[in-house]
């Protein structure tokens, strides 16, 4: 345990990089994912096709491959992005289809009778969407979105693993190499910080989801 206490500043530094990756990657993915979701329900056929193909491809590509593309292949193609930024881009791109699906499933979760009732009361398109559908869809998308963020938290480790960003996993690997006699303590320390984010979020997601389940 001494190793963890001695290197606590290093851990915290790694943890803050992980949180930074989580925040920027998450916001990027949220923006991209919203665009993809909007494209998927748009009346323009080409946009729908493009969004579907994008979703299918990214979803079936391993994250490692995406991160390697951003960290190793992009510099060959002439980009001069720092690794941290490349990692953020990789995370945002990889996570965006999952966000899009979470949003779509939330909107699909609103019973069709709600929109029908609104329309039969004489509400127009924008009124139906903004007053009836979106408020209900929004609540239902929160748990799936939290779920995506949990996955993203775990995925930040890949950025540290492939590249040269010393976030939690990177710090753990360096410390484990430096302290060969205390590998267990070092890595359990790393695990603790990940669990600090993922477990509370997991409980929150299940709790909120359970509320909606009961209401349905």
């Amino acid at each position: 345990m001494d190793v963890v206490v001695e290197n606590l500043p290093l851990y915290l530094e790694g943890f803050s990089v992980t949180l930074l990756l989580l925040a920027v990657g998450g916001i990027g993915a949220l923006v991209l994912g919203t665009v993809i979701a909007a494209m998927r329900i748009s009346p323009i056929a080409t946009l729908r096709v493009v969004a579907t193909v994008y979703t299918e491809i990214i979803r079936n590509t391993p994250l490692t491959l995406v991160v390697i593309f951003c960290a190793i292949i992009l510099p060959i193609l002439g980009s001069e992005l720092p690794y941290l930024i490349a990692g953020m881009i990789a995370l945002a791109v990889y996570t965006s289809p999952f966000i899009a699906e979470a949003l779509r499933s939330g909107i699909n979760g609103v019973p069709i009778g709600q929109a029908e009732a609104a329309r039969s009361l004489g509400l127009g398109f924008s009124q139906t969407v903004s007053l009836i559908v979106l408020p209900q869809a929004f609540r239902m998308t929160i748990p799936p979105l939290i779920n995506v963020l949990i996955a993203l938290t775990k995925n930040t480790s890949v950025v540290g693993g492939v590249g040269f960003v010393s976030e939690l996993f990177g710090v753990g690997r360096t410390l484990a190499n430096a302290h060969g006699d205390a590998v267990i303590a070092v890595l359990v320390g790393v695990a603790f910080f990940y669990l600090l984010v993922t477990v509370p979020l997991g409980f929150l997601a299940t709790r909120l989801e359970r509320k909606w389940v009961v209401q349905r």
Binding site: K154, N155, S157, R173, A176, V183, I184, A191, Y194, G202
Partner: peptide, 19 residues
Amino acid sequence: IEFFRGMPVLLMMLFILLV
């Protein structure tokens, strides 16, 4: 179960490899 669900797989791989 909660413990393993909340951990990155990569960290587990490294743990098993080293420990």
